[in-house]
Amino acid sequence: MATKVFDSPAAAVADIPSGALLAVGGFGLCGIPDDLIAAIVAGDATDFEVFSNNCGVDGHGLGILLGEKRIRRVTASYVGENKEFARQYLAGELEVELTPQGTLAEKLRAGGAGIPAFFTPAGVGTPISEGGLPWRYAADGSVAVASPPKEVREFRGKRYVLEESIGADYSLVHALMGDTEGNLVFDKAAMNFNPLAAMAGRVCIAQVEKLVEPGEIDPADVHLPGIFVDRIVHTGVQNKQIEKLTVSESKEA
């Protein structure tokens, strides 16, 4: 049987083509697959559609791809600390679908579980369900593309909006530990969107800080089973960045 282990991030992402749909794990700069993103940046592929909680920050994570204008569309929960993300969106250079965070998480999970759509109360009575949310602006600031209205139904006296699940061509995730069969363990808050993004991709590529042999991870400790993971790269300890540093003055005189 062919091994899932790749020698380098570059080798693991080498076949990702221009125009690919990418589900990317992480939250802010926590648990982002930075080495895999850097490997894509080093290549020539472009025109990506990205599904991720946010789009990194200026100069880090997905923000690097964004800064090179190699992302055409983003489905995310918030703009975050990324000024270039906001600039491209407002200038009409980038299409953005803003989605409630819990809805985005469930859209990814449902996609991986083979569920085409689901009903949720989040967004009922807002532009999320009624339509008109700006997806792309024109150069003059007018709305060039707006979101369409979605189906709303009532269940047991409460209204719910229909949301379609997400299916991506590739998913990129970061894990604390993985074995050569693809079973993954995530560290604390890095478990955020990583398992969900992994499930949503047709081909899942995982970078791991520690790579071990099968059986070295207690089955009870596995957060994501290897059935969802197709490629693994041992990248070592992540060079963790701080998205927003807040300091206070010392109380000492």
Results as ranks from 00 to 15, higher is better:
M1W: 04
K4A: 08
F6I: 01
D7M: 14
S8G: 06
A11Y: 12
A11Q: 09
A12Q: 05
A14N: 03
A14T: 09
D15V: 11
I16S: 00
L21C: 00
L22M: 09
G25E: 13
G26D: 13
G31D: 12
I32Y: 05
I32P: 08
I32M: 15
A42V: 05
G43R: 05
D44G: 07
D47V: 02
F48T: 05
F48V: 04
F48E: 02
F51A: 02
N53G: 00
G56V: 05
V57L: 02
H60W: 10
G61W: 14
L62M: 15
L66A: 01
L66P: 07
R72Q: 14
R73M: 10
R73T: 03
R73E: 13
Y78A: 06
N82A: 06
N82M: 09
E84R: 14
R87D: 07
A91K: 14
E95Q: 12
E95H: 01
V96S: 10
E97T: 04
G102A: 15
L104T: 02
L104F: 08
A105N: 09
K107T: 01
R109E: 06
A110M: 01
G111Y: 05
A113S: 09
P121A: 05
A122E: 02
V124Q: 02
T126F: 13
P127H: 03
S129L: 12
G131S: 12
G132A: 10
W135N: 01
Y137R: 05
A139D: 15
A139R: 09
D140R: 08
G141D: 12
A146E: 14
P148D: 06
P149N: 03
E151Q: 14
R153G: 00
E154M: 00
E154H: 07
E154I: 10
F155A: 06
R156G: 12
K158G: 01
R159G: 03
R159L: 01
R159F: 11
Y160H: 14
V161F: 13
E164L: 02
A168D: 04
Y170T: 02
V173S: 04
V173A: 03
H174G: 04
T180R: 15
T180K: 13
E181D: 07
L184T: 00
V185R: 11
K188N: 11
A190G: 12
L196C: 05
A198S: 15
G201H: 13
R202V: 09
A206S: 05
A206C: 12
V212G: 11
G215Y: 14
D218P: 12
P219F: 10
A220N: 08
L224I: 05
P225I: 09
P225D: 14
P225K: 07
G226K: 13
F228K: 02
K240C: 06
K240H: 08
Q241P: 00
Q241L: 00
E243K: 11
E243I: 01
E243T: 06
K244P: 03
V247Y: 11
